[in-house]
Write a protein that binds this DNA or RNA. Sequence first.
RNA 1: GCGUUUGUAGCUCAACGGAUAGAGCACCGGCCUUCUAAGCCGUAGGUUGCAGGUUCGAGUCCUGCCAGGCGCGCCA
Length: 587
Amino acid sequence: MRAFVFKLVTATLEQLVQEGTLPDEVLPLLLRGGLDFKVERPREKSHGDFSTNAALVLARMARMKPRDLAQKILDALPLEQDGETRCEIAGPGFINFYLSPARLRQLIPEILSQRDTYGHSRLGEGKRVLVEFVSANPTGPMHVGHGRGAVTGDAIARLLSAVGFHVEREYYINDAGNQVDVLGRSVLYRYREIRGLPAVKPPSYYPGEYVTEIAAALNNQDQDLWLTASEPFGQPLDENTLPTPPKEVVDFTIARVIEDIRKDLEILGIQFDHWFSERTLHQEGGIDRVLAHLVEKNLIYQGVLERPKGGDVDSSDETDLRLQTLFRATEFGDDADRSLKKADGSYTYFAADIAYHFDKAKRGYDLLVDVWGADHGGYVKRVQAALEAMTGRKDLLDVVLTQMVNLTQGGKQVRMSKRAGTFVTLREVLEETGADAVRFWFLTRSSGAGLDFDLDLAKAKTNDNPVFYVQYAHARVYSLFAKLKERSLSEGEGDLSRLVAPEELDLIRLLGVFPEVVESAALSREPHRLTYYLLELAAVFHGYYNNYRILDEDPELRGARLSLIRAAGQVIANGLTLMGVSAPVSM
RNA sequence: GCGUUUGUAGCUCAACGGAUAGAGCACCGGCCUUCUAAGCCGUAGGUUGCAGGUUCGAGUCCUGCCAGGCGCGCCA
C-alpha cells in the first residue's frame, strides 16, 4: 500500500517538473532515486495513514516555501477525492494521506486470499544471499549464546527469503587448527581413565562431561585400538612437545560433537543447506591460492606488528617482535595490518577465514550475511578488508553481531562458568522451556543489545509472558470458530461495511503495516522489529476481543467480525512463522 | 592507549533522519467478573549520558568528552 502512494507522489513530481514548477534538475534525481523524500507511516494517528515529506525536501530546489510547494503537489495529485483517500497539508509542509474506512476494509479479503503469502514480496528480485550463522566450534555442546546466534540467523534467513531473495544457510565448521588437537587429546586422556589406566591431565584440555562420554563411546567401538596412542597421557606432558592425536580419534570426536549440535538445531527447527569444513580449505590448497593472489597484488609483506598498548597484554613478551607474514589490511580501512602465518609456518585462523570468505564470494552470491557473537566484533573490519582486496567489492559482506544472553530464574542470575564446567547448555534450556519460547525470546531485543532470558517467565501461561501473549492471540481466533460450531451458529453473511468501530479500523490499519515491517526487518537484518510488531498486534487484538463481542447475534456483523479476526489470525501466524515459532490452534 | 558496541520513564526495552520520544512491568485512582486464562479505563512519570556541529527538522548523522560491555596475541 505504501508503494502505491510512493508511486503516486513520484508521478506527481514528474508532472510538476514538466509544468515548470520544479526545476529540470529534479527529474534525473527522481529517476535515479537520488532524492531522499519518503512516504511513511506517521507515528501520530491524527496525521493520517501515510505521510510524505516531499515538499520539505524539495522546497530549497524549487525556491518555494515548503507549504506552498505542498499545495502545488496536492493540486497536481491524480487522486480523485472520492472518499477513498483524502489528503491534506500539515505542519511545516507534510502531505498526509487518509484512507477511507471502505478502502481499509478491502484489506481483509486481500489478506484472506493471499493467506500465508501475505507480507511477502519480490523486493529481493531473486538475488542470491548466503547467511552463515552458528558456526560454533565443534569442541563442545552449544551454549545459550550460540542459541541466540542460531535463532537470529535463521530469522534473518526467513525474512530475506520472504522478501524475495534466494537464501541459503551455511555452517562453517572450524575443524582444523590447534583446538581440535586439544579436543583429541582430551578424549585420549579420558579414554585412559575409563580403562583404569594411569592418566594425567594434559596442560590444556576440555573439562566437560561430554568429553568423557565421547571417550566411552570410542572405547566401546574401538576397544584396545588407541592404547598406544594414549600412552603419553600416562604421565605429565611438556607443553612444547604435545603429541598429535590420531586423525581417526579426532574425526570420531568431531563427528560426535557435530551430531549433538545438529540435534540442538533440529529441536530449534533449523536446517542448513551447507556444512562447510575448514579442513577442506587446507586440503584443497584454497589458502595457498588466496595468499598467492594477495602476493600478486602486493598486499603481503614481511614485517613486525606493534604491540598493543595498555590493557592486560604482557609487555615483557618479545615474541611479537618477530618478523611475520602480514596482510596490508590498513589499505582497506582496518586499524592494523594482520598476521597470516605463524612462526612454525602454519596459517593463522584469519588466513583460513579469508580463503573461506573468498570461496563464498566465488560461489556467486550477491550478498553475504554473517552472524557472529559480539566477542568476534574486532574481526569484522579485517575480514571485510580482505574480501574487498580479493574481490574489489566493498559491501559484499554484512556482519550482524549478537550480544550475550543472561539466564535468570526467579529474578536471580543463573551463573554460567565454563571453567567450573557448570555452564548451562542450550539443550538444557530447550528441554526446560521448549523451542518456541527460546526462539521468540531471543528475538525480543535488537541483536546488539544484551538479553536477559527469564526461565520462569518463558514457561508461564500468563500475559506477562510475551510468547504466550502472542500465541494465545492466535489460539483465541480459532477458539472463537470452535465456539461458533459448538453453538451451531452460522458464520453469517459478513457485511464488512458493518465494521465501523475505531478499534476495528485500527486493527485493520495495523494488519496493513505488516508487509512494511517484514520488509524493514529483512533489509535492516533486525528481526526484533517483527517481534515488537506482533506484540503490538496481539495487544490490539486482545483489546478488541475484550471490548467487543465477536459472536454477535446479528449474522451480518458476526460474519464481518469473524472475517476481521480471521485476517488478524493469519497475520499473526505469518509473523510467527517468520520467527520460526509455532502458531497453536488451541492452548 | 586503539577499535567496537551500548547509554532513552523507577525497572526491562522500542522508535526506516520527521510532527507532541512510545510500550510492558511497577506505582496510584476507578470500574469489571464476559466468546477459556485478572481484564478494562485513567493519572503520573523524560533536558534521550554531557558539550558542540551538520539541516527545513537530530534519540537517530559528524566531532570531542563521560560511563559500562566486548575485543585488541603467531587462539580459534
